[in-house]
């Protein structure tokens, strides 16, 4: 599954980040979002944007990014 299917309040583990834009993959890596990272979904809204908590930081990510983050349930 991808982050897009994530549910509010749940914690997931990242399996992979798959995106065409390599620069965004790098930004995510620098933010500590890569394989094995734990992500908590805090909020979501129509349009596919998510607020997530990663390593103690809140981030808002857009639809394309959410679709590119492959996750599995804890």
């Amino acid at each position: 599954m991808t982050l897009s299917e994530g549910k509010v309040g749940e914690i997931y583990t990242v399996l992979e980040v798959q995106m065409e834009q390599k620069n965004i993959v790098r930004r995510l890596e620098a933010l500590g979002i890569l394989e094995m990272t734990k992500i908590q979904v805090l909020n979501t809204k129509r349009g596919g944007a998510f607020i997530i908590k990663v390593r103690g930081t809140r981030l808002a990510v857009g639809k394309s990014i959410a679709q590119g983050i492959i996750i599995k349930e804890e």
Binding site: Q21, G47, L59, V61, I65
Partner: peptide, 11 residues
């Protein structure tokens, strides 16, 4: 359209 919003939300 690629929606690549990525922004940190401070406390």
């Amino acid at each position: 359209p690629q929606n690549t919003l990525l922004i940190e939300l401070p406390e």
